[in-house]
Computed example of a mutant assay.
Amino acid sequence: MSKKKKRQHYVWRRYLRSWSNSKDLIPSLIKFEKKIATTNLMNVAQEKFYYSLQEFSKEEEIALKGIISNLSNQDTEVIFQEYYELFTSYSKLKRAIKNNEIPESKLVEIEDKLDLMKSNLMEDFHSDFESFGEKLMQIKTVEDLKFLDDDESELKTIIFLCFQYVRTKRMQNIFTQKFQGHYKILPKYFHILSFVLATGMANGFRNYKKTKFVFIENISSTDFITSDQPIINLKEDERDEKGNVISLEFFYPLNPTIALKVHYNDGNKYGHLKIKEKEVKMFNNIIFKKSEDFIFAKNSKQLEEYKNCL
C-alpha cells in the first residue's frame, strides 16, 4: 500500500462497464437529485474513504468480538476471528499511541503506515474479492457457466456474489437504521460485520445446500437495468416472526441482455431461462425498488420512466 485510495466504490466499476460506453460514461438516474446524467464511472456508487477503518474503545472491541463469536459456527470461527484481528488492528495501534506505548522514535513511521492502513486495507480486500467475479463478467451462454464445475471456481464465485450483495451503501443504511441507538450493536461495526455476514452466507450456500445457477437470457427489446444495489435477494421480503430474512435467491443482471439467478438447488446445478419484455420489466422494477441512490441503463431514454416514479 503506497498511496491512499480516496474514492472507494461500493459497486465494482468493472461490472458497471457493461452499461457504459468506451469512455467509461454511464447513463445514470441520480435519485436524490431526481435527474438523469451521463456520468463517469469514477463518480458513481462511490464515497470518499467508504471503507476506512474505525477506532474502537476496548469495550467496543469486546462487544464486537462477542457479536462475531455469536455469528460463528465450526466452519467459520477461524476466518471470522481473523477478520476481527485484522480489522481492529488499526484501532489497537491507535490506542497504543494515545497511551504512549509506542517508542517516540517509531511514531512517525508507524503513523504514516497507519494512515495508509486506515484508508486502504479493507478496500484492498474488496479488490481481491472482485477478481473472483471476472469469469462471470465474460459469460455469454449457459455453457459458459460450466467453469463452476470446478469446486474452487464455484466457491470463489459464491464468495464474490455474497460480498457484492452485502457491501453496498443500501446495506450500510439498512444496518445503521436498524441498530441506531442499540446498546450493543453499533452502526460503525458495519464494514467488519459485512465481511462476517458475506462469508457466512457463502458458507451456507457452499456447504449446507447445493447451489443452482440459472442463466437468464433477455430476448426482448427492453434492456436489463442495474443499480447501486446490483445484486438483490428476490426473497428479501419473506421473513420470520422476528423480522429476519429466511431465504436467499440472488438476482444479478450481468449486462443489458444477460442475468444470473442463484438459489438453493432443486436437483440441477444449471438452468436456462429465456424471458420476454413482461418479465424483464418485472425484474427491472425490483432493481429500481431496491436501489439506493443510483439507477443505471445502457441509454438515458430508458431511465425516464423510472425518473417519473420518484
Rank of each mutant, 00 (worst) to 15 (best):
K4L: 13
K6H: 07
H9I: 01
V11Q: 01
W12A: 02
R13K: 15
Y15C: 06
R17E: 11
W19E: 01
W19T: 00
S22I: 10
D24Y: 06
S28N: 09
S28Q: 04
I36A: 11
I36N: 05
T38L: 09
T39E: 14
M42Q: 12
E47H: 13
E47L: 08
K48L: 02
F49I: 04
S52A: 14
E60H: 03
E61I: 11
K65S: 15
G66W: 04
I68L: 08
N73R: 07
N73P: 07
Q81A: 14
L86W: 05
F87M: 06
T88M: 08
A96K: 15
N100A: 07
N100K: 13
I102G: 04
L107M: 09
E109L: 12
D112W: 00
D115P: 03
N120I: 02
N120P: 02
N120R: 07
D124C: 01
E130M: 09
S131Y: 05
F132Q: 08
M137A: 13
T141E: 11
V142K: 14
V142R: 10
V142Y: 01
L148E: 00
L148S: 04
D150M: 06
S153N: 15
I158Y: 05
C162I: 09
F163Q: 06
Q164N: 11
Q164Y: 03
R167T: 11
R170Q: 11
R170C: 03
I174A: 10
I174S: 04
F175W: 14
H182K: 01
Y183D: 12
K184S: 09
I185H: 04
L186V: 02
P187M: 05
V196D: 06
V214Y: 01
V214A: 00
E217T: 06
N218L: 10
S220Q: 10
I225V: 14
I225R: 04
K235L: 15
D237G: 00
D240V: 10
E241A: 10
G243E: 07
G243Y: 09
F250R: 01
I258K: 03
I258N: 07
A259F: 03
K261Y: 05
H263D: 08
D266P: 02
L273A: 02
K281R: 13
K281W: 06
I286D: 01
F288S: 12
F288Y: 15
K290T: 11
E292A: 04
A297H: 04
A297R: 02
L303N: 01
C309A: 12
C309H: 10
C309E: 15
